[in-house]
Computed example of a mutant assay.
Amino acid sequence: MATFRFDTRVAHDPDRVWAVLTDVSMIPKWFPAVQEAHFDGTHRHLTTAEGTLKSLVVTEDDTLRRFQYRFVEGMPQPIDFHLGTIDVLPDADGSRVVYSQEILPEALAPIVGIARYFAVRG
Results as ranks from 00 to 15, higher is better:
R121D: 09
M1V: 14
D61G: 00
L56I: 01
D23M: 00
E106I: 09
V98N: 03
H12W: 12
E102H: 09
L89N: 11
G51N: 07
Y117T: 09
D13P: 06
E106H: 07
V98H: 00
G51S: 04
G51K: 02
T85Q: 14
I111S: 08
G51M: 04
T85G: 07
R70A: 15
A115P: 01
T59N: 05
R66C: 04
A19P: 05
P28L: 15
P110H: 01
E106V: 08
T3A: 13
M75Q: 08
L104G: 03
A107I: 06
T8S: 15
V57M: 11
E106W: 04
L53Y: 15
R96C: 02
L56V: 01
D91E: 09
V97Y: 03
E106S: 10
K54E: 10
R70Q: 15
T22H: 01
I86Q: 09
A107K: 13
T52Q: 11
D80G: 11
E102F: 00
H12G: 11
A37K: 03
S25P: 05
S55R: 04
F31V: 05
H43L: 12
R44E: 04
G122E: 08
Q77H: 15
D87C: 00
P28T: 14
W30S: 04
V57N: 11
F31D: 05
E50P: 01
V112M: 11
P105M: 00
T8P: 10
F71A: 12
R121Q: 09
K29Y: 11
W30Y: 11
H43R: 12
I114A: 12
F67Y: 13
A37R: 05
F4D: 12
V10S: 01
F6P: 07
V17P: 00
P110R: 01
H12V: 07
D13G: 04
S25Y: 03
R16M: 03
L104N: 11
E106R: 05
P76D: 02
V17K: 02
E36D: 09
P14G: 12
T85C: 12
A92V: 05
V72S: 14
T85Y: 12
L104H: 07
V57H: 08
S100H: 03
P28N: 14
S100I: 08
F67H: 14
V24I: 14
W30P: 00
R65V: 00
T42A: 14
T48V: 09
A92G: 13
V58M: 13
M1D: 12
Q101T: 15
T48Q: 05
D7R: 15
L108D: 10
F71W: 13
A115I: 12
T52A: 11
G51Q: 06
V120Q: 10
A2Y: 12
L89C: 02
V17F: 04
T59V: 13
Y69K: 06
K54P: 02
D23V: 04
E36V: 03
I86Y: 10
R9D: 10
